[in-house]
Structures are given as structure tokens and as C-alpha cells.
């Protein structure tokens, strides 16, 4: 009569459980991503979407700390605007299946899409050949934390009057700051390795790699 599902975890224990799960999810994805045949950009996008979605869900115990904003920015930089918009929307919808779906999903998809589009427009600024500037990604990701939250806050105008909006934004500032700082951490740790495997699995590298293979 032992019911393992009835174990009640404290918030800290739940957080450690989720962090362990995230490592278990991310590690094989990292191996899979590295061992993809070069130029496999669509498989790479799918892996990244799974990583971003599970990362957002599992880090939910932490206030406003999740990897999606940085990953969307990197997808914009490497894979362009249209793919980053699709990516952003899929991650917003699939993570909200667990976290709760509502009118805000639309604004989250919109805001992350804007982050991806920004990445694609400024991709020349981030990339020097194939090397990525971690500091520039960090700086833009930091600003994107605030910008994302403010765009999503527009959804509050469905329930509060416009004149209350500045106060609503002000009350959210501490959480915006946490999002921005979290982005800085993800940019520092993820943008190097993710950028490396995304470069190898970009549409451009397929164009270069495949003719070489047919010649040999």
C-alpha cells in the first residue's frame, strides 16, 4: 500500500527534482545535437524546441527564469526570422499546455517572435564568421527580458484600464529584472555551445557540405 505518487515535496525539493530532470533531458539532447549529420537544421530546431519547452516547464518553480528567450534569440540569429517565429509560437503553446493556456499565450508567442526577429535582423552584429559574441548576445538578451515582459503585459489591458498600465508595469519591474538576469546566465552558458552546433546544422552549412560529399 505504498503510494510513491503521494510523496509531498517542499518547493526546494521540487526545484532540485526539476533541475535534475532538466539535466537528464538536456544531456542526451546535447549528444544527439552534436552527432547530427551536418546541415540537419530542422532536426536541430526540433531538439531546441523540446529543450526550450521542457526548460521553461521545469524551471517554473523559479520566478521568471527560463531559457526560452535566449534560445529564441539564438534561433533568430542562426536560422532567420520566419523559423524563429514558428519556433517561438510552438514553444509558447506547448509549454502553456502544462503551465496554463489563455489569451496570454498569444502575447507570449508575439513577444518571443519579436525577440527572434530582432536576432535575425541583428545577426551580423552577433556573428563574426561562425564565432558568436557572447557579450553581445548577453546584452541583447538582458534588454529582451524587459521588452518581452512588457509586450506580454499588454495582455493585462484586457482587464485593467489604460491609465493603470504604467503602475502595472512598475509593479512588475522586479520580475522583469529577474528575467533579464536569468537571460544573462543562459546567454553566458548556452550561446557558445548552442551556437556551435547550430552553425554546423544551419542551412548554409548544408549548402556547403553536401556538394563536397557528392564529389567524393
Amino acid at each position: 500500500m505504498i503510494d510513491a505518487h503521494a510523496v509531498v515535496l517542499s518547493p526546494i525539493e521540487a526545484l532540485f527534482l526539476n533541475l535534475s530532470l532538466l539535466c537528464i533531458v538536456a544531456w542526451p539532447m546535447w549528444i544527439a545535437g552534436k552527432s547530427l549529420r551536418p546541415g540537419n537544421d530542422l532536426a536541430m530546431l526540433a531538439l531546441l524546441a523540446l529543450f526550450a519547452t521542457s526548460g521553461r516547464i521545469l524551471l517554473d518553480p523559479l520566478p521568471n527564469i527560463q531559457p526560452v528567450t535566449v534560445v529564441v534569440l539564438l534561433v533568430g540569429i542562426h536560422y532567420g526570422a520566419s523559423r524563429s517565429v514558428a519556433f517561438a509560437s510552438v514553444v509558447a503553446i506547448s509549454s502553456n499546455l502544462v503551465l496554463g493556456h489563455g489569451i496570454w499565450t498569444l502575447y507570449q508567442a508575439l513577444a518571443w517572435s519579436l525577440v527572434g526577429i530582432t536576432g535575425s535582423l541583428l545577426s551580423g552584429m552577433f556573428l563574426n564568421g561562425t564565432a558568436i559574441s557572447i557579450r553581445r548576445v548577453g546584452a541583447v538578451a538582458f534588454v529582451a527580458g524587459f521588452a518581452f515582459d512588457w509586450v506580454v503585459s499588454i495582455s493585462a489591458l484586457h482587464s485593467i484600464p489604460l491609465e493603470s498600465f504604467p503602475v502595472y508595469l512598475m509593479v512588475g519591474l522586479p520580475f522583469d529584472l529577474v528575467h533579464a538576469t536569468g537571460n544573462l546566465v543562459f546567454a553566458a552558458w548556452l550561446s557558445g555551445p548552442l551556437s556551435e552546433i547550430m552553425t554546423r546544422n544551419s542551412p548554409q552549412s548544408r549548402a556547403v557540405v553536401e556538394p563536397v560529399k557528392t564529389v567524393s
Binding site: 557572447i134 529577474v178 557558445g192
Partner: peptide, 17 residues
């Protein structure tokens, strides 16, 4: 230089949280 960002960003995040 960029390696300083990794520990520094985590310390900053802990302070902010």
C-alpha cells in the same frame, strides 16, 4: 574575458533573486 561572464552572471542572478 568571456569566461568571467559565466560565474559573474550566476552570482548576479543569485543576488537579484
Amino acid at each position: 574575458m568571456s569566461d568571467i561572464i559565466k560565474p559573474a552572471s550566476i552570482i548576479l542572478l543569485v543576488i537579484v533573486v
